[in-house]
């Protein structure tokens, strides 16, 4: 019978990332359904001191690998520790965040364990001890339900911003167990880290995204979206047309060959709504389209549509948002 569910907690820059709380919450739900305990593995530098904190999410035991050489994620360095934790606790399922590093770790870990991975899942169910996971395929045009063979270990990564986060129960501490494995000899290394310190909100984690397409007409006009984004605490995205034109960095591209985002609110300005763009933002909780062409396909996906010239509308909208924020705070 199942003993535990193991989550991989992501630790960066001295803290657990938000995706780790989401993973822990989901892990706890599955563990409860299985009548199992919740364990975690955390790899990083300085993580041992913080690991007990995961107890707030119901984690009983955290396996940690703490070494300055593990400061930054490297598949070759992290995977042996995650695999070791799996050996130690023999879980009924492994749950990771489908973050940039989590997806990579999950894939290599699965191969190392000979386990099957369902990447980027949006739902996990557990009926009568049987785990199933649902994941978008064909860029969200369809969903696939995955099931594991008898005796196979499910490895599941969870799409950020989708699953419910449990309220932490303050004070609960997890037991911390150090993994005794040495840091393996590595044939890959981190040469540099360049973190954006401008306070920009990360697209894949943003609750609100303001996105601009070819209708923005030029790079200088994005200042308008940046301003709106700042008031909303939003991230700024772009269509491929804007990125291909060199107006915005490729890291801002939303879509099938860009980022897949799941904000509460996605505001598309001057974006026509090509199928490849919809692939990246179609599952946003609310979609607003601002387009001067009332026939633009984006309107068929939008909860609220505004048929206007964005150069008139965005400043007026920004003004109204500012007023709302002033009365709310």
């Amino acid at each position: 019978m199942a003993k535990c569910v193991l989550i991989v907690a992501e630790f960066r820059g001295g803290n657990f990332r938000r995706v780790s709380s989401e993973g822990a919450s989901e892990g706890k739900r599955i563990a409860d359904a299985l009548g199992a305990t919740l364990c975690a593995v955390a790899v990083g530098s300085g993580v041992a001191d913080k690991a007990a904190e995961l107890g707030r999410y119901g984690v009983k035991t955290v396996y940690v690998a703490d070494d300055p050489a593990l400061e930054s994620y490297l598949a070759e360095a992290y995977v042996p520790f995650a695999a070791d934790a799996v050996t130690q606790c023999d879980p009924a399922a492994v749950i990771l965040p489908a973050s940039v590093d989590g997806k990579d770790l999950g894939a290599r870990l699965s191969a190392a364990l000979g386990a099957a991975l369902a990447q980027d899942c949006t739902q996990i169910t557990c009926d009568g001890g049987k785990i199933k996971a649902k994941r978008p395929v064909f860029a969200g045009k369809c969903f696939a339900w995955c099931e594991w063979a008898e005796g196979a270990l499910p490895v599941i990564s969870c799409r950020p911003n989708v699953m419910d986060c449990l309220l932490p129960s303050e004070g609960d501490q997890a037991e911390v167990v150090k993994l005794s494995l040495p840091v393996p000899a590595l044939r890959s290394r981190v040469k540099g880290i360049d973190l954006d310190t401008s306070g920009k909100v990360e697209l894949t984690e943003a609750e609100i995204i303001v996105s601009g397409g070819r209708g923005m007409k030029g790079p200088e006009n994005y200042a308008m979206l940046e301003e709106l984004a700042k008031i909303l605490g939003a991230a700024v995205g772009a269509s491929r047309a804007a990125v291909d034109s060199g107006w915005r960095p490729h890291s801002d591209q939303v879509g099938q060959t860009g980022k897949v985002v799941n904000p509460n609110l996605y505001i598309a300005a001057g974006i026509s709504g090509a199928i490849q763009h919809l692939a990246g933002m179609g599952s946003s909780k609310f979609i607003v389209a601002i387009n001067k062409d009332g026939e633009a396909p984006i309107f068929s996906k939008a909860d609220f549509g505004v048929v206007e010239d964005l150069f008139n509308f965005i400043p007026a909208f920004t003004e109204e948002v500012r007023k709302l924020k002033a009365t709310c705070s």
Binding site: A144, W145, C146, A152, L153, S283, A289, A316
Partner: peptide, 25 residues
């Protein structure tokens, strides 16, 4: 195979949206 897709399903249809009307911008 250790994992199989046992079924596919289509995403939920989004409810029809609304065009925001008003006298002016």
């Amino acid at each position: 195979a250790k994992m199989q897709v046992t079924s596919f399903e289509m995403p939920p249809q989004r409810a029809a949206g609304r065009i925001i009307e008003g006298e002016d911008t």
